[in-house]
Write a protein that binds this DNA or RNA. Structure first.
Lengths: 132, 132
DNA sequence: TTTCTTGCAAAGATTTTGCAATTGC
DNA sequence: GCAATTGCAAAATCTTTGCAAGAAA
């Protein structure tokens, strides 16, 4: 795949399988979900390779690690800046592509050098609304 | 302690020790940090009790669970709505007490019923700026 | 007294690590 | 060929659970 050539990591078949699975994926999957999906087509795949690859891709900026669910990392292949809306019941996550201007006065930042921000909106998704 | 009477859980000595440790605590500690601190004065304290207590307090609205650091829950005794500024190097967290009005158009919310939001600002704290 | 909580240890879940064999470039 | 990566299993972390004994209300 040409499009992955410039990420800057060695493109092994395992990594390509993960990249293909993540490409355009809007479900914000966890490492475990990715492992289960990819190892179906790639039975010798090891979990360590999945973690290794996700870490490498994160460091190269090819995907974002989300710390939205406690005790579990989730991954987002969309590296344009955006926010997330999370269902508090089923933990479903959808993307919010709106820019917000959030100014902090210097006094609030306590000497921190501000680099960016991420907004988590909380709500209840239509599916969970219908139940109960 | 009178002030804890109305939380709605049984006030055991272990729970009081955790409540005292968390009261006014601005360091957003993890369960492990809390366990280490509280068990110094309370050597028979078990980790299970710490988790049990934190979960109970969270459910009663007496503290917030933060999912800011991957693989680890952190706790905040301040239950007024506020945001956080996180040092991307040392994971230090400070509170941001500013209200932001963030309107999502209905189209963006995808049918979700919005309940609230939380902003994570990212930056580098003064300590980490000086190093390196 | 009744119900909830504790402490302990074992189990679960997620992630990391060490290392020999293998592979991309 | 060299350096990076894989797969495997063991270990490290963090959290939850089962249950008998104990304590709060």
């Amino acid at each position: 795949m040409e499009k992955y050539r410039n990420i800057g990591i060695k493109l092994t078949p395992q990594r390509l399988a993960i990249l293909h699975y993540m490409d355009g994926n809007k479900s914000h999957p966890s490492a475990d979900t990715i492992y289960n999906a990819v190892s179906k087509k790639f039975p010798t795949m090891s979990v360590a390779t999945v973690y290794n690859t996700l870490e490498a891709l994160k460091n190269k900026g090819a995907l974002q690690e989300l710390t939205i669910e406690p005790g579990k990392k989730r991954y987002d292949p969309d590296n344009t800046p955006h926010h997330h809306l999370i269902c508090v019941k089923c933990k479903d996550i959808i993307d919010i592509f709106k820019k917000f201007k959030l100014d902090l006065s210097d006094g609030m930042a306590n000497g921190f050098e501000i680099k960016g921000h991420h907004i988590e909106f909380y709500g209840i998704c239509p599916k969970c609304s219908k139940q109960h």
